[in-house]
C-alpha cells in the first residue's frame, strides 16, 4: 500500500513541476507590472513592484521561490490590489464560502440523480425512462448562465415580490449556519439543477450496464423480485462506479462554483480569482492557480489511494 502511495506521489511530481512552469511562463508573456499599473505608470513605480515581487530576478530563481512558497505554505506575498492583504489570508478567508456551496450541492445532486437514475433504469426502455432521459438532455442543452439568471429572477425577485417575504438573497454572503439558507440555498439549488442532467445520465448508464451482468441473471433465476434485484443486488454493486464518480468530482469542490460565486457575489475562491484576473493582480493569480493545481493533484492521489484500499487489484497496475 505504501509503495503504491509513494508511486502515485512520485508520478505527480513532474506533472506539478510542469504546471507551475507553464503557469509562470504564461503569466509572464505580458509584463505583469505594466499590465497592472497601465500605460501612464512611472518607470520607478514599475521597477519598485517588480523588485518587491522578484520579477527582475532570473526565471529559474523565481520558479524555485514559488515552488518553495507553495510547499512550505509560506503565502505572505501581498496582493497588489487589496492593500496589505496577504495571499494566504485571502485563500483561507475564501475557502469556507466556496465549500458552503459546493459540498451541499454535491450531496444534493448525487442523491437526487441516483434516485432518478434508479427510476429510469427500473422503467428501462419505457415511456417514463425515455421522457426522463430526454429531459436530462434538454436540461444539458441550456446554458449554465441561463439557469443562474432565471434562478435569481424567480428565487430572489419574483418570490420576494409575490410573497412579500425575502426567502433568498439577491446576492452576498454572511458566515454562520443561521445565514446559510438565506444566502447559499438558492445557488446550491441552481447548481444542483444544472449538474443533474449529466449525473443522471451517467448513473443510469452504470445501472443499465450493471443490470446485464451474470449475478442479476442468477438472482432472477433464483426468483428474486424485480424490486429486490434493483435495490438490493444492483444498487450495491453499482456503488463502486458511483463512489468513483463522486470521488473524481471532489477536486472540483475546492475551486468552488466560480460562475455562481461571481453572479451571487459570494466571496469564495472562484470569485477572488476572477477578480484578481480582472484587476491584473498578478501575485494572487499566480499563487491561487498554483495552490488549486496542488490541491487538485493531492485530492486525485487521495482518490487513487482510497480506491486502491477498496479494490486491491488496482495496486498492481
Amino acid at each position: 500500500m505504501w509503495s503504491y502511495t509513494a508511486r502515485r506521489l512520485l508520478y505527480n511530481v513532474p506533472v506539478y513541476l510542469g504546471i507551475v512552469l507553464l503557469l509562470m511562463a504564461a503569466l509572464r508573456i505580458n509584463d505583469p507590472a505594466y499590465a497592472h499599473l497601465g500605460k501612464n505608470a512611472r518607470p520607478e513605480d514599475l521597477e519598485e513592484i517588480r523588485q518587491k515581487l522578484g520579477l527582475d530576478r532570473p526565471f529559474l530563481e523565481q520558479y524555485w521561490a514559488l515552488l518553495r512558497d507553495v510547499f512550505t505554505l509560506n503565502l505572505g506575498v501581498k496582493s497588489w490590489t487589496n492593500e496589505g492583504l496577504s495571499v494566504g489570508r485571502m485563500l483561507s478567508e475564501s475557502i469556507k464560502p466556496s465549500l458552503a456551496i459546493t459540498v451541499p450541492a454535491l450531496v444534493l445532486t448525487s442523491a437526487i440523480s441516483i434516485c432518478i437514475a434508479l427510476v429510469s433504469a427500473f422503467f428501462r426502455g419505457r415511456a417514463a425512462d425515455k421522457s426522463l432521459m430526454f429531459l436530462a438532455v434538454l436540461g444539458m442543452s441550456v446554458s449554465f448562465l441561463v439557469y443562474i439568471v432565471f434562478g435569481q429572477y424567480l428565487g430572489a425577485y419574483l418570490l420576494t415580490r409575490e410573497t412579500g417575504y425575502g426567502v433568498f438573497a439577491i446576492g452576498g454572503y454572511e458566515p454562520g449556519l443561521a445565514n446559510w439558507p438565506y444566502y447559499c440555498l438558492l445557488p446550491v439549488l441552481i447548481s444542483t439543477i444544472v449538474a443533474m442532467g449529466y449525473d443522471t445520465r451517467f448513473y443510469r448508464a452504470v445501472m443499465v450496464e450493471e443490470s446485464g451482468r451474470d449475478y442479476i441473471v442468477t438472482a432472477k433465476a433464483k426468483g428474486a423480485s424485480k424490486r429486490k434485484i434493483m435495490f438490493v443486488h444492483m444498487l450495491k454493486n453499482a456503488m463502486i462506479p458511483i463512489i468513483t464518480r463522486i470521488m473524481t468530482t471532489l477536486p472540483f469542490l475546492i475551486m468552488g462554483s466560480l460562475l455562481l460565486e461571481v453572479y451571487f457575489n459570494i466571496p469564495g475562491m472562484g470569485r477572488v480569482l476572477y477578480k484578481a484576473i480582472q484587476e491584473q493582480d498578478f501575485p494572487v493569480v499566480q499563487v491561487f492557480v498554483a495552490i488549486f493545481a496542488a490541491l487538485f493533484i493531492l485530492s486525485n492521489i487521495l482518490t487513487d489511494v482510497l480506491y486502491a484500499l477498496v479494490d486491491p487489484r488496482v495496486r498492481l497496475s
Binding site: 506533472v15 504546471i19 503557469l23 472540483f252 475551486m255 488549486f292 493545481a293 487538485f296 486525485n300
Partner: peptide, 8 residues
C-alpha cells in the same frame, strides 16, 4: 493541462 480546473 487537466490538473488545472478548466474554467481557470
Amino acid at each position: 493541462f487537466s490538473s488545472i480546473p478548466w474554467i481557470v
